[in-house]
């Protein structure tokens, strides 16, 4: 529907506006650094959203793929390769590993896939921690060079901020195109009813593989950017605590929406920041929140906003006495086609 289309446009506009003005508004270097991290984690959460939110497959190896991207970029740029070459390469490797892991695990359904990917995530952490010659073991990789264009180095916070923002917009663009298309409908058909999707001719296995590869490509990309901007990485970069964090961002913000993951990735760390005084207890709140959200608000913040909007709209419509839908070819672009 036109309304939804407009809302998507609005969403981009607001995001861009916020993006441009944020460096002017935020003067605190610490908060600004948080914003940069939120941008990076937005990319990671958006990619988790593709495989979990839209395709319905709980991949818990997401931090592992983030780690592959991070170590890929770290190792390649330290060896002298340009960031601009290392990043796509590392992302591609991440997607390729995703393909290899997807082959055995995506044939399974439901919990099996979650458990298998979790296992794979653990394997990655163990390998990173123990393969000292390559990864530096538990001390990690230090002194990873920052991205450069010519002689310009992305060392100031503002330049880093805009760099990550550009990558986030790229991610958002790809996700938007994928989700609002027949391909996106294929993803959702697998999530919603896999046996029926298969019965109407959708190769569900191939669909899941595509979703998993794209998700892991962007997870790897987020990791690569992280490594290059932070400058040092360690096995904890790939630890599943990261996956859990993104899961919370995703569910809190709203799974299977494009705005939700970004909303979650900004709102939640900020919330945690304000709860700093609670120290370790913060994590307990984190856990309680996760349970409450999944039980009572499974569609997250964006889901809440959507149903509110829907309620207002129907009321408005009823008042105007035009409750009937009219099919027009142009109006059909509402959901996907």
């Amino acid at each position: 529907m036109a309304v939804k289309f407009l809302r998507e446009k609005w969403f981009y506009l607001v995001l861009l506006l916020a993006a441009v003005t944020l460096p002017l508004v935020v003067t605190d270097r610490y908060i600004f650094q948080l914003a940069i991290m939120s941008l990076i984690f937005s990319i990671a959460t958006l990619s988790l959203n593709l495989i979990l939110g839209y395709t319905g497959q709980a991949s818990l190896a997401h931090a592992g793929f983030f780690g592959i991207g991070a170590y890929g970029v770290g190792l390649m740029t330290k060896a002298g390769l340009s960031f601009w070459l290392a990043l796509p390469l590392a992302s591609f490797i991440s997607a390729l590993v995703g393909f290899l892991i997807g082959l055995p695990t995506l044939r399974t359904r439901g919990s099996y896939f979650a458990i298998a990917t979790l296992c794979f995530g653990v394997i990655i952490s163990i390998v990173i921690g123990n393969w000292v010659e390559l990864t530096g073991g538990h001390t990690g990789l230090l002194g990873i060079p920052r991205p450069k264009i010519g002689s310009f180095e992305f060392s100031s916070q503002i330049s880093q901020y805009y760099l990550v923002l550009a990558f986030l917009l790229l991610t958002l663009f790809v996700m938007h195109r994928l989700v609002h298309s027949l391909q996106g409908l294929s993803f959702m058909s697998v999530r919603n009813n896999e046996p029926l999707a298969e019965a109407v001719g959708i190769n569900t296995f191939a669909t899941k593989i595509i979703s998993f590869m794209v998700a892991n490509f962007f997870a790897g990309m987020a990791g690569g950017i992280y490594a290059s901007l932070i400058g040092s990485i360690s096995p904890s970069t790939a630890s599943f605590n990261h996956t859990f964090n993104w899961l919370v961002y995703l569910l809190l913000g709203g799974a299977a929406t494009l705005a939700g993951p970004i909303l979650g990735a900004f709102a939640f760390p900020l919330l945690m920041e304000y709860l700093q005084f609670l120290e370790d207890y913060r994590l307990i709140i984190f856990g309680v929140l996760l349970i409450i959200v999944i039980i009572y608000f499974p569609r997250g913040l964006m889901g809440g906003i959507e149903s509110l909007q829907h309620r207002i709209k129907t009321r408005y419509r009823l008042r105007k006495g035009d409750g009937k839908n009219v099919v027009t070819a142009s109006g059909k672009s509402h959901q996907a086609v």
Binding site: G56, L251, G287, P298
Partner: peptide, 12 residues
């Protein structure tokens, strides 16, 4: 998946 996520909350 929902139970799984709830479980993650519990283990945290």
């Amino acid at each position: 998946i929902n139970s799984f996520i709830s479980a993650i909350g519990a283990l945290i």
